[in-house]
Design a protein around this nucleic acid. Structure first.
Lengths: 193, 193
DNA sequence: CTGCGACGATGACATTTGTCAATAAAGAAT
DNA sequence: ATTCTTTATTGACAAATGTCATCGTCGCAG
């Protein structure tokens, strides 16, 4: 159950984990299941948990005045899902998070995060994760302001081919900030070139 | 000279700073001046320093095939400027960073960062900074994929009025991912509504 | 098995934004 | 003072993308 979490930790830190640490970590993460379409976080409420995905696929998105969803983040196995602003500041979230497939998570409250943050490996892992998240976010932003639709799609296929496999096209379109029709046309160009 | 840096640290952490810590921090940050338009980082080279801006204004941007600049990040007094990916991984950067005004910095190498990272206040400060950077980046991304040009501009004016004051319109346009002509027209709508 | 809803493709058209060119005003350099 | 550069605005037109409607397919719930 906790195997992929510990694998993730080991991959993202060099510090060893004692048996005691391991116990503390296990006690701090709670298992949770989500059915397809079930909400993990609803707009207006506080994000009380960070989730580590053991199995499944999730979406984080905003909904605008016209009811259109805008995908902020997609995540599958071995990714984290949380609205950090809401989680850290305990403020109502402007985003929704739900399960796109039936999903199994390990969830961590802020209190438990602080508790295990005394462990070097955990501290290091979150540090690493923060850095790479920021870098990825900045990269996506760069693409978003500098590349046309086709090239943004190509970058996504190159960097996150799993997303393109696991999520329907209209979700991918929203992630890229374009309409589903535009993505459909852009893909036509893409496969024929 | 180091006053605003220590103010920044105090604002972003609760841990106290001993006299020894203060000395170590002072020794780890080197003062550096940049003249207007002078490069702090050139595309293709490694970003060896993180800079804390004491005075002035800087831009981080990519340059595409057609020679157009795309502004990734703007920064003024009390902001940090760095290409994290290049800085942390010691890989050649895809971005340029330069001074838009004559600028005074305190710069920190990765080695010195690791040296002062033993200090709780520093660790906490960077942790805080990472979190808020990520949140800001995600917010900007959200706007970029979900709002039209006018509303993106309004958000910028609301959240970072200083940027709009300090940088010329074509730079703001590039930051928003639109052409300078579009921004000019959008501003007309904005001031007349 | 059947029907309904989700998904994706496509055409017609509207809207937004970009590009290019011309102009003018404000600064910076000499 | 004069020149040169940078910045901002505007018009005409082009290109990219969005919107709306329609259709066909597929998978799943009843």
């Amino acid at each position: 159950m906790y195997e992929s979490l510990f694998n993730y930790i080991k991959q993202h830190s060099k510090s060893p984990i004692s048996a005691d640490d391991e116990e503390l970590i296990k006690k701090s993460f709670l298992p949770r299941g989500l059915k397809k379409k079930e909400l993990f976080l609803e707009q207006g409420s506080i994000c009380n948990y960070t989730g580590f995905i053991l199995k499944g696929a999730m979406r984080q998105y905003s909904v605008d005045d016209s009811g259109t969803e805008h995908i902020i983040q997609l995540a599958i196995e071995n990714w984290w899902m949380v609205d950090r602003e809401s989680f850290l500041m305990k403020t109502p979230s402007v985003y929704n998070i739900d399960a796109w497939e039936n999903t199994e998570l390990l969830v961590l409250s802020l209190e438990n995060l602080e508790r295990i943050h005394t462990i070097d490996a955990i501290k290091e892992m979150f540090w690493q994760m923060n850095q790479s998240n920021f870098i990825a976010s900045q990269k996506r932003l760069n693409y978003s302001i500098s590349l046309p639709a086709l090239e943004r799609y190509e970058e996504l296929v190159k960097n996150y081919p799993d997303f393109v496999q696991r999520f329907p096209q209209h979700t991918i379109a929203s992630y890229l900030g374009i309409s589903k029709e535009t993505l459909s046309r852009v893909r036509n160009k893409y496969v024929h070139k």
